[in-house]
Nucleic acid binder design. Sequence first.
DNA 1: ACAATTTTGCAATTATGTTGCAAATATTAT
DNA 2: ATAATATTTGCAACATAATTGCAAAATTGT
Lengths: 139, 139
Amino acid sequence: MSEAIRELLKKNHMSVTDSRLQILDLFYHAPGALAHADIEKKASDKIDRVTIYRTLQTFEEKGIIHTIPSADNSVKYALCKDQCAEGHHHDNHVHFVCDNCSKTICLDDVLVPEVKLPGGFEPHQSNMVVNGLCNECRS
Amino acid sequence: MSEAIRELLKKNHMSVTDSRLQILDLFYHAPGALAHADIEKKASDKIDRVTIYRTLQTFEEKGIIHTIPSADNSVKYALCKDQCAEGHHHDNHVHFVCDNCSKTICLDDVLVPEVKLPGGFEPHQSNMVVNGLCNECRS
DNA sequence: ACAATTTTGCAATTATGTTGCAAATATTAT
DNA sequence: ATAATATTTGCAACATAATTGCAAAATTGT
């Protein structure tokens, strides 16, 4: 079960450690994206704050997770669907943030549409976040 | 000159104070969006950090400025083009963040396109941020 | 000009993020 | 399996960012 997770770490030339296994496990079982604080709370064995920061950073660099921008100073992280190339993310899907339960969800199948920019602007990357009511909170 | 700004404050039932005039003035003359730190630095007369936090918050509530989400924990603020209704923003334009000069610019004429969400999701508000090179940095 | 209300500035507190380094753990080669 | 090497962790210290309560100051309406 955690065998897949071990493989993922090895594939990315990372040592297999308790904290990493635990954090990855959290991501795999989380209903939505996780913030640093969420991980700190949910971890069964206490993981040091600093370790969490560093782990999130290396996971992000390795293309295992990606960041989701927010308007309230609380960046969240979610698993990249298909492994992103190291240092080069290609997560161009829309993110949804529920106004009610405040879950952040990756809409893997909804791609960020292209927009036509004014002359002189050269786009590299686009992010789109939609707020509203998620499928669960609407019922 | 600052007469228009005074009017804006009165129209929104806010007392006219030095810090507010100064902060609004900064926004009107800024090349792009401003973060809390920018305001603290650029203010001619020193304004207390706490006052800046509170002023930004009330401006946002009154619909005078809006927040721009980011992926690096540094929320910025910009003037709402047309007064937004109190507590109800309708700034649905795309924002551009330059990877070089890191200015954040409101592309007032580029509207955030609609996307089709999976069944059950009810959208309320959309945000879109494009990174790349701005018109000045490309030259 | 006065009374009522709002806003400010300070101090204290809490939250968030970063760095250096020694100890612990994991990996590699023998 | 063990030793040598490399990586990762946890702690302490520090730095920055944000929030709260409250008394003093400024603003507004009469």
